[in-house]
Structures are given as C-alpha cells and as structure tokens.
Computed example of a mutant assay.
Amino acid sequence: MSSRRQWIQWAGLGAASLGVMGRAWAGPFPEKPIKMIVPYPAGGGADQWARIVAGKAEKLLGQPIVMDYKPGASTTIGADAAAKAPADGYTVHLIDSTAFAYVPNMRKVSYDPLKAFTPLVHLGDLPFVLVAHPSVPVRNLQELIAFAKANPNKLNCASAGVGSPHHLIAEIFKQRAGISMNHVPYKGAAQYIADLLGGQVDLAVSTLGPAMPHIQTGRMRPLAVSSGKRSSTMPDVPTIAEQGFEGFDEKPWNCFVTNAGVPAEALERLRSAFRATMDDPEVLQALRKTGVEEVGRMPLAQISEQMRLDNLKWGDVIRRAKITMDS
C-alpha cells in the first residue's frame, strides 16, 4: 500500500510538471509524420528557420516533420498547396507577408489570405540587408544614390521574386531615393546569392542569414539594413533610416500556420509544441544567428489581426506605387 501511495505521489508530481502543455498533448494526434510546406527553395533563409523549428517541434510531437519545398509564384504555390491540404493538422505552413499581404493586393489568388489559415506561433521579425557586389563602387546609400542617378537603369537589383518582401523593400527605397534600378526576380535566396557572388547582378535585398557568411568574407558589401533599429547580428551595418530616410522601418514577419478547420485537439497539440519550441533557448539562439529578431514575441491572439492590418497597409502602398506582378 505504501509503495502504491508513493507511485501515485510521483505520478502526480510528473503530471504537475508537464502542466497545461502536457494536458494539451494528451490524445492520439499525431499518428503519422507532419508535412511542413516551405514556399522557398532549399538553402535559403526560410529553409534555415523551418529546419531549426521543425527539429525541436518533431521531438515534442513524437513524429517526424518532413520538409516540402514549393517555391515559385512569389510564395503563392506553397500557400495554395497549404490551403488545399486536408484540415487534419498534418500540414503546417511557414507563411510570410508575401502570401497574405503583398501578392493578394497585386493579383487574384486561389485562397483567401485571411481565412484559409489558422496561426500556430509567430516566428519573428525579419530585417533585410541591402548588399552589393564588391565591384559596385559604392560603400553607403548616399554613394549608391549618386551612382544610380549618374547611371540610370545601369544597376540590377535581385530579389526572391516579384511581390516578395525583398522586392517591395527595394521599391519603397527606390521611390524615396528617387532612383531607378532594374529588378531581377528569383525564386529564392540560394539563386540570387549565387548570381550576386558571380557578379551577374549588382545588388540584392536579402534576409540576413544567407548573406552573412559572404559579408563576413568580403564577397558582399552591406550597405544598410531595413529595420528601424540596427540588427543585433550586424550591429556595424547602419540602417536605411540612419542614412537620410527617417522613419524607414520595414521588417516583414513570418509565422507558422495550419489549415482553418483543424480539429481542436490537433490544433492545441500543434500550438503547444510550436510554442514550447519558440521558447526553447537553443532554438531562440539559433534563429537569432540567422538574423531573426523578436523571436516568437507576437501573441497568438494578435497574429490574425496583424495579418489583416498588413493586408490593408500594403494594399494601399502597392496601389499608390502602382506595383504589379510585372514590376
């Protein structure tokens, strides 16, 4: 009887230590691997973030998380596939502003950007960096502007696709600076990084992770970061705002979502696992090393509303700037 009583006490302590998370995980879900749709090619920033998070979340869920790369059409191929997947919790999607705020304001998409998905957790804010090939004779934004005005349409600026954050940040900067540059869209970071290193393009607006190793070796020259504050991973690189563009603060954000209509048990288990993952110090450190700021800070209740507000904000920007999918 005494041993039985001790066992009950031990079990009670174990259950208490698991807390709400443990109760949310009770039940059969998941019973098979989970697919994570990444709307960019392997090797870029999105791939890094997805793998960092999936590596921890799959241990908590007890099932593998398998990467499913669906690049193209400015991330909407991936978003469309995610929206059409069965609403059973076995599809997770890494979504960014492109799919819910940018492209839907440029052309019709096959999914409702504000109703097709249910948020799981905020990934973080993503400062971008404007980088140049060393052959371009500029070291800061003022020199870039002077060179671009003296050589109209000579410079080529790469992005991860028409309507991507990379593209729109470059467009806003060009408008405010009063310069023209040729836009060269790619499917993702791996492709534009390769061409920038090879000198096929002059400049790129990039997420920090893919660009940092080449900045450190001198094969790319950083000119400015897009956020209002300097990046913690590139503290020596000034912001666009610091270089004469007051108020410039563009740092698009990503989040992990699943389909709308996923059963409550599966949804809560996914949310518990992804929330615990984003709270893990090792995951936090790994994401910060790739340039992600404010990791997981946006409350779950705020994500859907922020998606709606961003859709309105960027719709206004895009219409005023007359940016189209052919830009």
Rank of each mutant, 00 (worst) to 15 (best):
Q6F: 11
T207W: 04
A189C: 06
G12L: 09
H122D: 05
G244A: 07
A57N: 08
D68Q: 09
S227I: 00
V283I: 14
A132R: 05
E282L: 11
I318A: 08
S97E: 12
K187A: 14
D326K: 13
V53E: 06
W25T: 10
D280L: 05
L94V: 08
E305I: 06
R288L: 04
D310Q: 13
K322N: 15
V109T: 10
I145G: 02
Y111Q: 05
F274Q: 07
R271T: 12
F274C: 02
P235Y: 07
N311M: 00
N151Y: 05
E58F: 00
P165M: 00
Q285M: 13
S97M: 13
S164F: 08
S304G: 06
N140M: 05
A132K: 10
T277P: 09
N254I: 01
P113V: 01
P64V: 05
M21Q: 13
T207R: 02
S206Y: 04
K251S: 14
L197R: 04
Q216S: 11
P185H: 02
I323S: 04
D310L: 01
W10T: 15
M36Q: 10
W25V: 11
R139K: 13
Y186I: 07
M220Y: 04
E250Q: 14
D112A: 11
D202V: 00
I77N: 11
V237E: 00
V53N: 03
G89R: 11
L287H: 02
S227Q: 02
K115E: 14
K70F: 01
Q243C: 05
V225A: 01
D195H: 12
Q9F: 14
R275P: 00
F256Q: 04
K59R: 15
G72D: 10
E242D: 03
P235L: 00
H167G: 06
L309R: 09
P113E: 08
P252N: 05
M181Q: 12
T277W: 09
